[in-house]
């Protein structure tokens, strides 16, 4: 390695990473790519469902009532200041630490909630006041107003929040590997422990592609959705 030029070494690492990725034996078994991919997908999906179920109703009702705005808007800024890794380790050292995936799931849900809360709240509050007044004038109840007027009009921003939360979840599920959780990050940490740069790079490529695919999936959903969900003005 010492005699080769740094450029050549880099190319070697990339080809080594590629051959690591395409070798069939690395895809099977408990530590295989297939299993890690499944864990990552499962963690992301479960936590997205939990955080949506917790955050969206609260944000919708708060937005409808017009209360708690400062909290809903500032919670994203607070969330950004708290390192995900620190929260994961803190949870790991608390009494819930030994319970398998629970510290990871709690941390993931905590970090997915701020964008959901903020976007849903801002979306509902952003509905034109004249539209809301017109709906009230037509005799709509609060419930009807929320589900038939505010929710559809806020849909583009709510969907943006879900997209940010999903991408955030993929990223946080990767960090979970640092504290012994499952997911694709485990390939990276295992590579570091084995001092195998090709394995680290292969794992990183997998994680990056996974995150970009999730982002692309939401973009496709947005493009295929009816115009009122897309939020296009044209």
């Amino acid at each position: 390695m010492d005699e080769t030029a740094p450029g050549a070494e880099r190319v070697n690492t990339l080809t080594d990473a590629w051959s690591w990725l395409t070798s069939g034996s690395h895809w099977s078994g408990a530590d295989g790519i297939g299993n890690r991919l499944g864990e990552h997908l499962f963690l992301t999906a479960v936590c997205l469902l939990i955080s949506c179920a917790l955050a969206l109703p609260v944000a919708l009702v708060l937005g409808h009532l017009g209360k708690g705005g400062a909290l809903a808007v500032n919670i994203s800024n607070v969330g950004r200041a708290i390192p995900t890794f620190a929260v994961l380790v803190l949870l790991l050292l608390t009494p819930i630490g030994p319970y398998g995936d629970w510290p990871t799931i709690i941390a993931l849900v905590l970090f997915a909630m701020p964008p959901l809360l903020t976007n849903a709240y801002v979306g509902i509050r952003g509905v034109d006041a004249d539209v809301v007044r017109a709906a009230r004038g037509m005799g709509m109840t609060g419930h009807q107003l929320l589900t038939r007027v505010e929710l559809p009009l806020a849909a583009p921003l709510i969907l943006t929040g879900v997209r940010i939360a999903a991408v955030q979840l993929v990223a946080t599920a990767t960090i979970a590997a640092l504290v012994g959780g499952g997911g694709l990050g485990r390939i990276i940490t295992a590579g570091f422990n084995l001092a195998s740069t090709p394995m680290v790079v292969a794992g990183a490529v997998l994680v990056a592609v996974f995150a970009l695919l999730v982002e692309a999936l939401f973009e496709v959903v947005r493009r295929l959705a009816p115009r009122w969900v897309r939020g296009d003005t044209g």
């Binding site: 990767t174 680290v200 990056a208």
Partner: peptide, 16 residues
């Protein structure tokens, strides 16, 4: 695209 890549992966991709 760069922002979407998770931090652990970003650091790892720069390792070589």
């Amino acid at each position: 695209v760069l922002y979407t890549i998770p931090s652990l992966a970003m650091f790892s991709l720069l390792l070589p």
